[in-house]
Design a protein around this nucleic acid. Structure first.
Lengths: 231, 231
DNA sequence: ATATAGTGTGTATTTATTACACTAAGGTAA
DNA sequence: TTACCTTAGTGTAATAAATACACACTATAT
């Protein structure tokens, strides 16, 4: 390309919107900033991308450093580059969303320092966020709302074994609307991507629900059969 | 954020996948490179983002410089940042797709030099592209395929006044499958977002078709009513 | 034994999708 | 002016999917 305008170089970062589903709530992982700019504010976990590092690997690394988790479902969804989004100057960020199974028994183990202050926040009660992170979060919600309607990403948020009611609640939270129980079960089971287990829920003081797991092989076989939910 | 790894700075660019619909074909705008790296290769129009310029404005500027067109439908769809995507070093690009009405009577008027070598290429017969531009193009196709199924972006590619057959052909090209004429018309007219005009097609040697136009106001009133097409 | 709380199930109605073929209109060429 | 060519424009029946809706079952706690 011709250099009519001078090239300039910019810092760039990756920010992650990490969703988790816990105690019947949809949560997002935030860190409390301890650094220059927006000190003490909550922010999305994010970091500088390294010289020799692609975007996806950077996102994976950052998530690992914050949570100790690897092999997590992540997807890039938008780049944010407004001129004034960062007080230090021009910083462009590429945003990813991630979905992780929250295992209440297993603490997240941050690998580097600043992650000590990472906490899960219910998405309906988020504090003000640093930079344009509120905007980034909103965009991620839009994206997963659409995506959950045609691809089985919700399973990434659930434990290996789950009940149909848990699955339905999760859909309801993400889509932000009530679904009909009988219709939901009929439809979900019809897709044929769930495997019914011989196992039941334990430790509940009412009739125990059957456990299911997501059958990735069956899903792959359907090749692009898309899910869809409206009511 | 703590500076555990050194920050580094990177060049970044915007690349545009510009779609046009002409002579019954879906086309994409390519430039022939006259610069260092991939000299003589076809590439997507793209350029360096300026220091004081946001991403969306950069995309709009670049499209304007290449085509002389403004107020075009554009949407950012993905950032590409593989370490080795550019021979000169680390260059991250934010990709946009754009859709423009090709008016055969009105030539595109490039404002800057390198755009002299811009041509429209049918999407089914693209040459090898420079850098990772083939990959960028493929991703843009995926995106518009999905998007056209739930939002009225196809109209951006058609002239103000169009026939239902033209509209159907365009859907068929983008979705890459045949649609049934009667079902298509029934469905499209049912959405209530088209305005039937008193005017007919001219200059054809067969029965002239009724012209329609897209009614933005009615569409807005439907507020998120989504289109959908399967067969 | 009984109260409690969530599980699990079926059917009828409405709506959307699909498959399918001929006549109407306008222009061209003999 | 007539025959012909090409595309426009139309309806219905069959099937599939979405929706609305309510009660009996079961495990546990008291």
């Amino acid at each position: 390309m011709q250099e009519i305008v001078p090239k300039f170089e910019s810092i760039f970062t990756v920010d992650c919107v990490v969703f988790g589903f816990d105690e019947g709530e949809l949560k997002v992982l935030l860190i409390e900033r301890n650094e220059e700019d927006y000190t003490g504010w909550w922010a999305l976990p994010g970091y500088y991308v390294q010289q020799d590092e692609g975007l996806d690997p950077a996102a994976e690394r950052i998530l690992y450093e914050l949570t100790g988790l690897r092999d997590i479902y992540m997807e890039q969804f938008y780049a944010f580059g407004d001129v004034d989004r960062h007080p230090q100057g021009r910083v462009i960020t590429v945003a990813y969303f991630a979905m992780i199974r929250l295992n209440p028994l297993k603490e997240l183990k941050p690998v580097i320092n600043y992650a000590r202050k990472a906490f899960w926040h219910p998405i309906n009660d988020l504090p003000k966020l640093a930079f344009d992170h509120t905007q980034i979060f909103e965009k991620s919600l839009e994206k997963i709302r659409r995506k959950i309607s045609y691809q089985p990403i919700a399973f990434e948020l659930l434990p290996e074994k789950f009940t149909l009611t848990q699955l339905q609640h999760l859909y309801e939270l993400i889509l932000n609307k009530k679904l009909d129980k009988r219709n939901f079960r009929k439809k979900m089971l019809n897709y044929g991507i769930l495997k019914e287990l011989d196992e039941k829920q334990r430790g509940v003081s009412y009739r125990a629900a059957t456990l299911y797991k997501f059958d990735r092989r069956k899903y792959a076989r359907l090749f692009q059969k898309e899910l869809s939910f409206s009511k």
